[in-house]
Design a protein around this nucleic acid. Structure first.
Length: 424
RNA sequence: GGUGGGGUGGCUGAGUGGUUGAAAGCGGCAGUCUUGAAAACUGUUGUGGGCGUAAGUCCACCGUGAGUUCAAAUCUCACCCCCACCGCCA
């Protein structure tokens, strides 16, 4: 969320950012509502001031055992006018806040302007596997090796759910353990295992609500949602808290399943593991001082890249343009892993700096050591990395002519030191 | 699910209608004393917002929301959350 004061002082900047994001919002209308709010607020506060003074006088009269009847009855009318003003101020406030929750973050100056076609490729790492045969897709491989059972997942739950089996399930678990170990041992993160259900305040704090309610799985009997990413519970750890400057930066990582309805994306990327309603992901979340957040973003990106490098997966780093970054982000890099079977790049990580956008919504602040002043932290997060698509990349890039899959070296300690997954 | 207790400032904790933004203690900061530190003593110490160049001034905030009243931390109602015990259960 942006500060209303900031918006008032930077109207042109905010308007420009909306154009660059291709979002239509009437900022002038917001300013009008806020003007009305301020006007009513001033009127209200004047009356309240009057009331407070009168109440003190009444108190004094009563103490001296004097008659205060006249004074009291004269205040009745004031009280009514205060009630009317309060209702007005409240109505305006509700409108302003609702509007503020729909305004996206301001894109950082360093990112490309324009729609998705303007994304810029920052760098590529690794070489595509030199396969001397026609590679299979992960769906075909999974079927032959009997490690993923799509039809039965559909029977149990519905379409676009997954059931891993045998070495497929082991591979999933190995990847999670490997990534968590890597981030905690080598990158200084503290592991978190958070709840998978969160309340409305948490969803609003990180920016998923109110905009994306249709994309969430929601409980019927309670106002709780299944998390779409570990970002939500982990970022909300410090909701409404004041941290000490010395505590920063804070690095958290955690594995959770992630649940997404993907409403409106039917027919798109529906093959196999590409776009599923439940997938596993290791997430990294940082709480940092404002002046450090862009350096921290680069480090975060490096932490995610290190995973792909360790797994030996060729990938590219993409900087998203203004029209393609998420609602809450001001700058975002995607990591796209190459998958040989489909011959395509798959988004396996998204690393974003939210600056104070989430912190303002979730009210996450810290106290400066020297000035003692409190201000909002900057929050960042990145996938480190998302599993379903990483599994695609591993299966397709490491497939062998005989239909088996070579296991990346770093995963073997987690898989009984096996070299490959073969048909059982 | 049942019963009982409770949500007050960074923390502990008083406060049941009228200078209570809120006692006291702890913690923090500044000072006195000291070669230095500790102790002791003194002072100070919440957040957000409106108006104002500023000094300043006004308003709000005692879980959340509504209500009663001239006046609410204090009374009423609803909701949320926490704790304890019982029941159920991985």
């Amino acid at each position: 969320m942006l500060d209303i004061k900031f918006i008032r002082e930077n109207i042109e900047l905010v308007k420009q950012s909306l154009i660059e994001r291709n979002i239509k919002l009437d900022i002038e209308a917001l300013i009008q509502i806020d003007n009305a709010r301020r006007k009513a607020l001033t009127g209200l506060e004047d009356l309240r001031s009057l009331k407070n003074k009168a109440n003190n006088e009444i108190t004094a009269l009563l103490k001296e055992k004097k008659d205060a009847k006249e004074k009291i009855s004269s205040m009745k009318e004031i009280a009514q006018r205060i009630d009317a003003f309060e209702a007005e101020v409240r109505a305006h406030e509700t409108q302003v806040n609702a509007f503020l929750l729909t305004i996206p973050n301001i894109p950082h100056l360093s990112i490309p302007r324009g729609d998705a076609s303007q994304k810029s490729i920052v760098r590529e790492w690794g070489n595509k596997p030199p396969l001397d045969f026609k590679p299979l897709t992960h769906v075909e491989l999974a079927q032959r090796l009997d490690i993923i059972d799509f039809p039965r997942a559909t029977k149990i739950t519905g379409s676009n759910f997954v059931l891993f089996k045998g070495w497929g399930a082991r591979l999933e678990r190995a990847l999670l353990n490997f990534m968590l170990d890597f981030h905690t041992h080598k990158h200084g993160y503290t592991e978190i295992c958070p709840p998978y259900l969160v309340n409305r305040a948490s969803m609003t704090g990180t920016g998923q609500l109110p905009k994306l309610e249709d994309d969430m799985y929601k409980l019927r009997d309670e106002d709780l949602f299944l998390i779409p990413t570990a970002e939500v519970p982990i970022t909300n750890i410090f909701r409404d808290d004041v941290l000490q400057e010395e505590q920063l930066p804070i690095y958290y990582t955690g594995y959770t399943a992630c649940f997404r309805r993907e409403a409106g994306s039917y027919g798109k990327d529906t093959k196999g593991l590409m776009r599923v309603h439940q997938f596993d992901k290791v997430e990294m979340v940082k709480f940092v001082r404002p002046e450090d957040s862009y350096a921290e973003l680069e480090k975060l990106l490096g932490n995610a890249e290190a995973i792909l490098q360790a797994l030996g997966l060729p990938y590219r780093v993409v900087m998203l343009p203004t029209g393609d970054i998420s609602f809450a982000a001001s700058k975002c890099y995607d990591l796209e892993a190459y998958a040989a079977g489909a011959d395509t790049w798959l988004e396996v990580s998204s690393c974003s700096n939210f600056e104070a956008f989430q912190a303002r919504r979730a009210n996450i602040r810290f106290r400066r050591k020297d000035t003692k002043k409190v201000e909002f932290v900057h929050t960042l997060n990145g996938s480190g990395v998302a599993l379903a698509r990483t599994v695609i990349a591993i299966m397709e890039n490491y497939q062998q002519k005989d239909g088996s899959i070579l296991i990346p070296q770093v995963l073997r300690p987690y898989l009984d030191e096996r070299e490959r997954i073969t048909k059982v």
